[in-house]
Amino acid sequence: MWAYKKMLWFPINIKKKNLKLAKAIITQYGGPYGELSAALRYLNQRYTMPDSRGKALLTDIGTEELGHVEMICTMYYQLTAGATIEELKDAGLCCNYAQHGGEIFMTDCNGVPMTTANIGATGDPLADLSEDMAAEEKARATYEHLMDMTDDPECLSVLAYLRTRELVHFTRFKELYDYYKGQMVQE
């Protein structure tokens, strides 16, 4: 069961419209290294983790990522608030408007719909955790690219927060990976 709490992990108050940045940020919703793909990856892999550490860590990080999905959607929502059709066309969001109107849809920044095909799920904890570590690094790199493209402090603060979370998740996945590996060597 999941319970919804009506609050964000981190405050988001973006007052400056920026459609081009919104178009780029959407990749962290439905792109290959996005938050939704991360959430699904971990929540899917947890069932075959060999012990309670792995089940707990994947459940907790997967759940946190669901909250990050909401943060990314909030950024997109606020960055595009009040946009006219002309402005959407100028920012390359005309196809998005044609297909989805004002709705936020889970695509990468080229409009390619989210796919689960790139989610590694091997049933092998070491292989899965290696995939998870890589996923966190790829998400971190994406956040850095997004940060390169803006100087709006209201966007930078949120992107910086999300980027740090990837550092934390990477560290915990690595610790669990090393722990499992160490156990194998002992046996």
């Binding site: 981190f10 956040y143 850095e144 940060m147 390169d148 930078l156 603060s157 910086a160 927060y161 999300l162 980027r163 740090t164 979370r165 550092l167 934390v168 560290t171």
Partner: peptide, 14 residues
């Protein structure tokens, strides 16, 4: 910053 842990945190740009 996004974490409590000093040993994990490495800033980028800000």
């Amino acid at each position: 910053k996004g974490t409590l842990f000093k040993n994990i945190y490495v800033p980028y740009k800000v």
